[in-house]
């Protein structure tokens, strides 16, 4: 796979990284099947060139970006982040990407923009047709979350171009939120005034909230979120508030009841 030139980031963790094989073979990408191994089997059918991302909505300069243009928008950084899945497992992944803020600033968000909506690629010819979730997959962030320096658009992992099953050619990574917020294979980014509808929340609103911040004190209705299994390890470890990024992000949620806004 193609190598990407990257610079190191002080925002990276020094924890042991999850094996590349596990990162690229154990995936939730329901468009390609709901078993963990399905995306690695099936996502090869997706063509990631040509690819454009429309950045639209409440922006002064909305426009469509070509993927090769996005790769040159900002210096590519290696960001080694913890990833915590809502299912209770976690990984440490060396992403390659750039801050989402760099892209949003390029389109000049209007003062009325409060949220960012994201949509995934959906092609029924090569993807799941059963409406397990509402397609295309949709996610969203509050604008301040989207502009936070930890929030990146990833185009690679382990120093190489992103494999399809991990959301090629470009995906979101929000490391203090459960993995499902980090939408894959993005085609549309829309600045909005109202909080956008998101796929998992549509499917089960009492189980998956808009915020989906990693929080060991707020259980999923069907299982505890207090602990997690780091892939590659046997014993579970305690889950950290905001997935260990509390120092950087807790201030975003000051005064909010995180049980209500789960």
């Amino acid at each position: 796979s193609e190598r990407l030139a990257t610079i190191a980031s002080p925002l990276s963790t020094t924890e042991a990284m999850t094996e590349r094989k596990a990162v690229t073979s154990y995936n939730n990408f329901y468009e390609f099947g709901t078993d963990k191994g399905d995306p690695a089997q099936n996502a090869g059918r997706m063509l990631t060139r040509p690819w454009t991302v429309a950045v639209e909505g409440l922006a002064g300069k909305p426009r469509r970006f070509d993927i090769d243009e996005l790769l040159k928008l900002a210096p590519l950084e290696e960001r080694i982040y913890r990833l915590r899945c809502v299912e209770g497992w976690s990984m440490v992944i060396p992403w390659v990407g750039f801050p989402l803020a760099a892209l949003l600033k390029a389109v000049e968000p209007l003062g009325s923009a409060k949220y960012v909506e994201f949509l995934s690629h959906y092609d029924p010819e090569i993807m799941l047709r059963r409406p397990v979730l509402q397609w295309p997959y949709a996610e969203g962030l509050r604008l301040d979350e989207a502009l936070h320096p930890l929030t990146i658009l990833a185009v690679g992992l382990y120093g190489e171009v992103l494999p399809n099953q991990n959301g090629a050619p470009i995906r979101l990574v929000v490391p203090w939120k459960y993995g499902f917020k980090s939408i894959k294979s993005i085609t549309t980014i829309r600045l909005t005034e109202r909080q956008p509808a998101t796929s998992w929340r549509r499917a089960a609103p009492h189980e998956y909230g808009f915020y989906a911040n990693v929080n060991p004190e707020v259980s999923h209705p069907r299982w505890s979120q207090a602990t997690e299994r780091r892939i590659g390890e046997i014993r579970k470890r305690p889950t950290l508030m905001f997935n260990g990024y509390a120092e950087q992000v807790a201030s975003l949620y000051q005064g909010m009841d995180l049980r209500t806004y789960y």
């Binding site: 073979s25 154990y26 963990k36 191994g37 299994r229 892939i231």
Partner: peptide, 14 residues
């Protein structure tokens, strides 16, 4: 056997 040979995937306990 899969447990022994580590062929049960990334999350063998699951």
């Amino acid at each position: 056997l899969g447990w022994q040979n580590d062929t049960l995937g990334a999350n063998p306990i699951e």
